[in-house]
């Protein structure tokens, strides 16, 4: 098992109970979508995996090793993260943004002068080619479109050759057509380099179309965990209605 999460709980200082005992196992090479509306706890769950959030109870095991402050750096070396708002450095070129993914293994003095080795640059260019942005390598990212920015974000996340990719609502800021192409890209890259992907989404159609497995989250609890091929929109709708979640809008709400 690549990842094993047991009894994860998190209550924020303002009293929000984000996670109320979550158990989840992820196999190597799986494309898991965590489906839930905003406030369901999916961002907290994802961030608990790479230690951006400290859970109050429960444990996360990565390759059979419990994640603690001593094992966290190792986990972070093996995970990449893709963000909803891309979190790129706007004034830098796409290439330099991708190269930031290699900073932990770079000579700190040289990297302060933006100097990277030929191999590192080749690696970054290959990642940009993989996301189809090679010809934008030297463009500033603030000149790129939203979809292109997220492609740079993906290239940055995969440059370390991670085992696990965490994607937090990667297409929430993009229009539906571009969303599809970004999800396809994630899936293809996952296949190509044998990447395990955990992706937060709130769109049921995207989850059904691209994932191997769907984990439904509602009110900080798992309400659904099944292979995607066994699921359809009707079934997911029924499950969520039972939990009073806002994953779907009821006509009464509008």
């Amino acid at each position: 098992m690549l990842l094993e999460i047991k009894g994860l709980r998190k209550t924020f200082d303002d009293g929000t109970r984000a996670l109320q005992g979550v158990d989840l196992s992820v196999k190597l090479g799986e494309f898991v979508v965590i489906l839930g509306s905003s406030g369901s706890g999916k961002t907290t769950l994802l961030r608990s995996i790479n230690g951006l959030v400290n859970p109050e109870a429960g444990e996360v095991k990565f390759f059979d090793q419990v994640i603690s402050s001593t094992t966290l750096p190792d986990l972070r070396k093996k995970t990449g993260m893709v963000f909803q708002d891309f979190n790129l450095v706007n004034n830098l070129s796409s290439l330099n943004n991708v190269l930031t993914g290699l900073l932990d293994s770079s000579n700190s003095l040289m990297s302060m002068l933006y100097l990277f080795s030929r191999e590192q640059k080749m690696q970054a260019l290959k990642c940009l080619e993989m996301v189809g942005l090679l010809d934008k390598a030297y463009s500033r990212v603030d000149k790129l479109s939203g979809g292109q920015k997220q492609r740079v974000g993906i290239a940055r996340a995969i440059i370390k050759n991670p085992t696990l990719l965490l994607a937090d609502e990667p297409v929430a800021s993009l229009d539906p057509m571009i969303s599809g192409s970004i999800m396809t890209l994630l899936k293809n890259i996952g296949h190509k380099i044998g990447l395990t992907i955990i992706c937060n989404l709130h769109q049921v159609d995207l989850a059904l179309k691209y994932s191997d497995r769907i984990v439904g989250l509602s009110g900080g609890r798992i309400v659904l965990d099944a292979p995607t091929k066994d699921l359809d929109e009707e079934y997911i709708r029924k499950i969520y209605q039972g939990h009073g979640s806002g994953l779907f809008f009821n006509e009464d709400d509008i």
Binding site: Y114, L115, F116, R118, K121, M122, L125, K126, E129, L134, A137, Y138
Partner: peptide, 9 residues
């Protein structure tokens, strides 16, 4: 890919 290499400065 190499044809896209350029000096950083």
């Amino acid at each position: 890919i190499e044809s896209y290499l350029r000096p950083q400065w």
